[in-house]
Amino acid sequence: MWRDALLVAGKDLRIELRSRVVLNQVGPFGVLVLVLFAFALGPAPAPMLQAAPGLFWVAVLFAGLLAVQRSFALESGDRGDGLRLAGLDPAGIFLGKAAAVVAELAVLEVLLGAGVVLFYGARLHSVGVVAAACLAGTLGVAATGILYGALSSGLRVRETLLPFLLLPAVAPILLAGTRAWQAAMSGGQPVWPWLVTLSVFAVVYLALGVLIFGPLQEST
């Protein structure tokens, strides 16, 4: 399972390194989301600062959605059954694709974090909390994203179906991630419940994916 996961993650990341689709298209899109929210909120710094943690996570979710779509676009069309025919362990495919999305999103989150600090004037007091929240939240987004991505891949309605399925499912990540960031920005608020929520979400969905990715692949 782990070896297959490494193979799949390596393959996806190698394609990304050569095509740079996520970095060159999804990254700027995420920054654009931050800019658009700034326009929507007006030029005063106070509301922007207050909304900064939530907007960061909304941008991450949108970018994650696109990263997941890209991850399954790699295997669409004639290459659809390639991974299955290669005899790879389904759990390995799941973990590998999720790991590749996590790596891509991690780069984007650094970019978006810098954007939040630059555009919104946010100050992050405890970088450790921010990093932990990002790691756990990103694992959760990637795991759910790959599950729903597999469910909707190969369908004609996948572009509209995936956001509809994925965004309500990752609502806990938006809630908990935002609260963790608020705690990291202001200090003094309890942060553990939110880090625990993010971690539980990630662990539950990674475990579920390992269990059901086999039958999930058969459903497309």
Binding site: T144, L147, Y148, L151, L165, A169, A171, P172, L175, A176, T197, V200, F201, V204, Y205, L208, I212, P215, L216, S219
Partner: peptide, 17 residues
């Protein structure tokens, strides 16, 4: 499968909210 994925989510949504 969609039901199972969602069923796992609902308790987490509930507690986080």
């Amino acid at each position: 499968l969609a039901v199972i994925i969602a069923a796992v989510d609902v308790p987490i949504i509930h507690f986080s909210v």
